[in-house]
């Protein structure tokens, strides 16, 4: 039997206690143990960003993180962001700008964009492109995604 370990952490604002396989990654824990499937598997090697989550306020690839390493930390997934009114503007911007096609990369894109907007409130196009370089999209050609994030940042300038 594989080795289990109990961890306790905050997930989307709620304290959770779960028992996980020590070798399991955070992505598998979220999807298979906890049942939150908004975080996507795209490559398992940190090359595509579809599994991006935020841990203690920074964005990470959940496929590159051991589940046990969530212990004691503050984890936010796309489902948590969906309950965050500040993120509404970002999500709406993605919708309005046509940044969503097949949508498989979208949760990871939004998690990364949200993190970026916390660091740079009003990013320009070049900054957004650099910020999203770890997130692959095969449908949109990125332009509308970049537009959506830039517009969201710009909207905050004018109250």
């Amino acid at each position: 039997m594989s080795l289990k370990h109990d961890i306790e952490f905050t997930l989307n604002g709620v304290k959770r206690r779960v028992s996980v396989d020590v070798t399991m990654n955070a992505l598998a824990m979220l999807r298979e143990v906890i049942g939150l499937t908004g975080t996507k598997y795209g490559c398992g090697e940190g090359e595509c960003g579809a599994c991006t989550i935020q841990v203690d306020g920074v964005s990470l690839n959940s496929c590159l993180m051991f589940a046990v390493d969530c212990d004691g930390r503050n984890v936010t997934t796309i489902e948590g962001l969906a309950n965050d009114s500040k993120a509404d503007a970002l999500r709406e911007s993605f919708v309005e700008h046509g940044a969503v096609q097949c949508g498989f990369c979208t949760p990871g894109m939004i998690m990364q964009a949200d993190h970026m907007l916390h660091k740079h409130a009003h990013p320009d196009e070049a900054c957004v492109k650099r910020g999203l370089e770890g997130n692959l999209c095969r449908c949109t050609g990125y332009k509308k995604i970049v537009d959506a994030v830039v517009a969201c940042g710009a909207a905050e300038v004018t109250p």
Binding site: L36, G38, T39, K40, G98
Partner: peptide
Amino acid sequence: KRIPKMDAPEKASGRTRYIHD
């Protein structure tokens, strides 16, 4: 016109269930 994709809000909130889900 510029009509947003109808399923985009679901996809953007991580609620869409793909075959993997």
